[in-house]
């Protein structure tokens, strides 16, 4: 029973979906504040249900299947697109040092699942048979390749300090010592933030979707229920990247427990997790609000000539220290 409750409701699928919709609302609200707008404000208190409302409304819309599309992939793949991310989120410790799934190879699994989702993106773009979508898919692939190495090297930093690939070990290491961000890990933290902006396809790295260039990129042909699932997978990716940042650099959900134990401790840990991830979302939306979209050529040039060497250097720095 407890396992089923953990997987389905808390901190499993139900709580993760709650996080996905709330984080998106938070991101939009903060971005709106930076841009002198109000942001969502109709659905729920100050628009907190807006993302959920968008999801429900989109899934009731008419679906159009283009003639040029690959019918089977176009029809069924979008429904499976959130699955790898949902699975990946089971690895993130939310309410205790131990996540739903924890073993010795957490980071490998997460990196694999992120790449799997990128592969799904490319396939979805290709399957819709639209030129915009194909350009978007190819840009998506290019970003996967460009940001892959910085992502790995940035996350390796925490692994090297904790001496384990397991997220639980990393969190426990940070609980007992310092957070990774304080000290040598700060450089890796910055690189990881930039990379997660790219993974989340936000400005300045939103080239795969670039609204004013290729009108939505790989998502352009999807409508109705299929698009709702694509939206959901993007929201889950947001949670995943934020959760990873918190786990790897900000000590996961740990914090002062005031000698409490049991349920109270779990609730406290959840609150710490929410606070830390809100801070990450604030930084991400600040970055996103203050920059313009870069060109694909500029992004590849920047990652290979700047971000990758710096990330390698930060790893070398840690080895020396």
């Amino acid at each position: 029973m407890v396992v089923i409750f953990r997987v389905l409701i808390y901190p499993g699928i139900g709580f993760i979906l709650f996080l996905a919709f709330t984080y998106d609302w938070l991101y939009r609200k903060i971005l709106a504040k930076f841009q002198l707008r109000i942001g969502p404000q109709v659905a729920g208190h100050k628009g907190v249900l807006q993302s959920l409302a968008d999801f429900i409304k989109t899934s009731t819309k008419e679906e159009i299947i283009p003639d040029k599309s690959h019918k089977v992939i176009f029809e069924y793949l979008p429904i499976f697109s959130p699955l790898p991310l949902l699975l990946a989120l089971f690895f993130i410790p939310i309410n205790s040092e131990y996540a739903i799934i924890n073993n010795q190879g957490d980071l490998y699994a997460i990196l694999f699942l992120i790449s799997l989702f990128a592969a799904i993106q490319i396939t979805l773009g290709w399957a819709s048979g639209n030129n915009y979508a194909m350009i978007g898919a190819s840009r998506s692939g290019l970003q996967l390749v460009s940001f892959g190495i910085p992502l790995v090297f940035a996350s390796i930093t925490s692994v090297m300090l904790a001496g384990s690939f397991s997220f639980s070990d990393i969190v426990i290491y940070q609980r007992d010592n310092n957070w990774v961000i304080w000290g040598v890990g700060f450089l890796a933290f910055c690189i990881f933030l930039i990379t997660s902006l790219a993974e989340m396809e936000k400005v300045p790295f939103d080239t795969p979707e670039a609204e004013t260039e290729i009108a939505g990129g790989w998502t352009v042909e999807y409508s109705g229920r299929k698009y709702a699932f694509i939206i959901l997978s993007e929201l889950l990716k947001e949670v995943l990247m934020v959760g990873l940042t918190v786990t790897l650099f900000l000590g996961g959900p740990t914090g002062p427990t005031f000698g409490m134990d049991g349920i109270v401790k779990k609730i406290l840990f959840t609150i710490y997790f929410l606070l830390k991830s809100s801070a990450v979302i604030f930084i991400l939306s600040l970055l996103s609000a203050s920059l313009a979209r870069l060109k694909v050529s500029q992004i590849t040039e920047g990652t290979w000539s700047l971000l990758t060497p710096i990330s390698i250097m930060s790893v070398i720095l840690i080895i020396i220290i």
């Binding site: 707008r37 400005v203 609000a289 979209r293």
Partner: peptide
Amino acid sequence: LTHEIGFDTFYLLIWK
């Protein structure tokens, strides 16, 4: 123009 290059913050600042 700034909206075209994805710099929505600047665009809203100008239009205000």
